[in-house]
Each structure stands twice: as C-alpha cells, then as structure tokens.
Amino acid sequence: MSAYAVTPYSNTYQQLLSVPTFGDLEAYARAVNSVPMLTPEQEYELSMAYRANPNDLLAAHTLVISHLRVVVAQARKYAGYGLPQGDLIQEGSIGLMKAVKRFDPTRGVRLVSFAMHWIKAEMHEYIIKNWRMVKIATTKAQRKLFFNLRSMKTGDHLSQDEIHNMAKVLNVKPEEVVEMDQRLSGRDIAIDGGMDDDDEAMHMAPIAYLADETQEPTHVLARHQEDTRQTDGLQNALAQLDKRSREIVQSRWLQDDDDKGPTLHDLAAKFGISAERVRQIESAAMKKMKAFLTLEYAR
C-alpha cells in the first residue's frame, strides 16, 4: 500500500458521494470542511505519484477532496450574481480536477494557488453563460469589463472621464462600458423574479443578493486572489533571490490571470541582457526556490 493511502481520505470520499450537493449545500460544506488539509509533504508526494501514474486515482481523489473546501468558499463569493450555489460548486470542482491533472509540484507553488485559476475560470464561464442580463459578455475584453466594472466605479453613476478611462484600461469601446453599466444596474428586466410567485425563484433572483455591498464579488475575489498568491512559503522563497531574479520570476509566473506576462525578449530589453541570459537567470532562480521549499517542507 502506498504511503499516502490513508484511511480518512478514503472514508471521506465515500461520505461526500452520499451527500446530495443540490439537496443540502450546508451538509456538503460541512463535509468538505471536515476533510483534513494536506501537509506540503503529502501534497508533493501525491502530486508526484499522480504525475508518474495518471491511473493512480487514489492520489488524484485525495488531492481533489482535500481542496473541495476552496471550491465551496469560492462559490459563496459569487452569490452576488444570483446563480445556484450548487451549480457553481459543480463547475468549480471541474476546474479543480483540471488543475490537479495539470499541476506540477516541482515548480515550487502550492496546489491551492495553481488551482484557483482553473476554479475561477470554470465559474466565470458558467456565470457568463447563465446570467441572462449579461449575454453581451462573450469576448475576453467584455468578460473583463463584466467582472471589473463595479469595482472600478467610484459612485452610483459613471462620469464621462470614468467611462473613457475604463474603456482604455479594459480595452473596450466607451459605449460598451455604458451598456454594461446599464445592464448591471438596470431594473427593466426580470431581475426580481418577474411575475413568478414561486418563493424559491424569488429567493434565487439576483436582486436578493446584489443589494449587499459588503459581499460585492469583485472586491472579495480581488482580496482572495491576493491572499492565495501571497503564501508564506512562496514569499519566503522569493526573498532568497536577488532583486533582478525575483522580478523575472514574478513577472513571468505571478502575473494576474487576465494579464499577459512579458516575454524573454521583453525582459532582455529591460535589463540590457540577452534573452538566453534571462532564461538562464529564470532557470537558476526556480531551482533555488525549489531547493529552499524542499528544505522547508522537510522540516
């Protein structure tokens, strides 16, 4: 038996299968939160085992189950879009499974940081496809506008300067900013459930959630992105590098999801060196971070 084939994860997996995600979300949330977190050593061993043998389903299941709490927490942060939490959890879980399949533990980054991109991507796709108010958000630029417009507004109404600034920053037309703002704040469609007398339908209508400014999804998402990226291990590893090496690693690997990082040639021009030298510095920095994290995990 493999060293990571521990009974608690196997038992919890069976328990989760018996919990109806759409029937009792609170019971599901309690179940996933009861799963013990993996230590860095366990995560590394499981991830290496799965990379070596893609048929090692126990390793994959354990990695997924131990991170389902992250999916549930992220789904709650999108309550402001008025969509079923069960659906969001399901989509986020698909993203988590994709992340586990692609995760490379040798890069020195924890799975939770790597998986967040895939979890959010699946949830974003679901929100875009299913929130009837915002069918306009079909391109990457429009999606970025959709998820950032409210956090960029400084008041109830957009000024002309704000409209043109947002259009420039988000790479869309000014009229698209105006239209999206109208769609997000308008009341001329069935945002309150329409004529449906079904209490459950009324409860799940967007109006039931959007009034709560304290849970505005884009603000919460931005804070969570920052928290997950600033993990202690990663920050300590980056601190071992010189300023140039650290800047290269951060610009190449730690950019925001929607931002395209600089190329080797971009960095070569910035530092006045060759692209090959940038690659060598990056490679040496990653090896140094990996060695540092390996020592940290061994303690």
Rank of each mutant, 00 (worst) to 15 (best):
G233L: 10
L254A: 10
T231I: 05
L267M: 07
G233V: 09
N236Y: 04
L241F: 03
E226P: 02
K270D: 00
R246E: 13
H265Q: 13
R244S: 09
L254N: 08
A239E: 12
R252K: 06
K243I: 15
D256R: 13
D257E: 14
R246D: 02
H265T: 13
E226A: 14
Q250W: 02
Q240G: 00
L254D: 05
Q250M: 13
R229L: 13
D257A: 09
A268G: 08
L241C: 00
D232I: 12
L238S: 06
D256F: 05
D258I: 10
Q230K: 15
R252E: 01
I248Y: 04
I248E: 05
I248M: 09
K260V: 14
G272H: 05
L254S: 09
E247F: 03
L264V: 09
D257Q: 10
L238Q: 06
D256I: 01
R246L: 03
T231V: 00
I248L: 05
Q255A: 13
Q235T: 11
D266E: 08
K270E: 15
Q225G: 13
S245P: 00
Q250V: 13
Q250K: 10
R246T: 07
K260D: 05
L267G: 02
G233P: 04
N236D: 09
V249C: 06
A239I: 03
P262S: 00
D259K: 05
D256Q: 09
R244V: 15
A237S: 14
S251E: 14
L241D: 01
E226R: 13
Q250S: 13
L234S: 10
G272L: 08
K260Y: 08
Q255G: 11
W253M: 15
A239M: 11
L264A: 12
R244L: 06
G261W: 03
Q235M: 15
L267H: 00
E226F: 11
K270L: 12
D256M: 02
K243H: 14
S245N: 02
S251V: 02
D232N: 12
A239K: 07
Q235D: 04
E226Y: 11
E226K: 14
P262N: 03
P262A: 10
D258L: 07
D257L: 04
A268S: 12
K270H: 12
A269L: 08
E247L: 03
A239C: 02
L254E: 11
V249Y: 03
R246W: 03
E226L: 09
Q230C: 07
R246A: 14
P262T: 01
S251D: 11
Q250C: 11
Q235I: 13
H265E: 10
P262R: 05
D232M: 08
A239V: 03
E226N: 14
D259I: 08
Q230L: 11
Q240H: 02
L254K: 09
P262Q: 06
H265Y: 04
G261C: 03
S245C: 04
F271T: 06
D232E: 11
D266V: 06
S245I: 00
D257S: 09
D258R: 10
D232K: 15
P262H: 01
L267F: 01
D256E: 12
E226D: 15
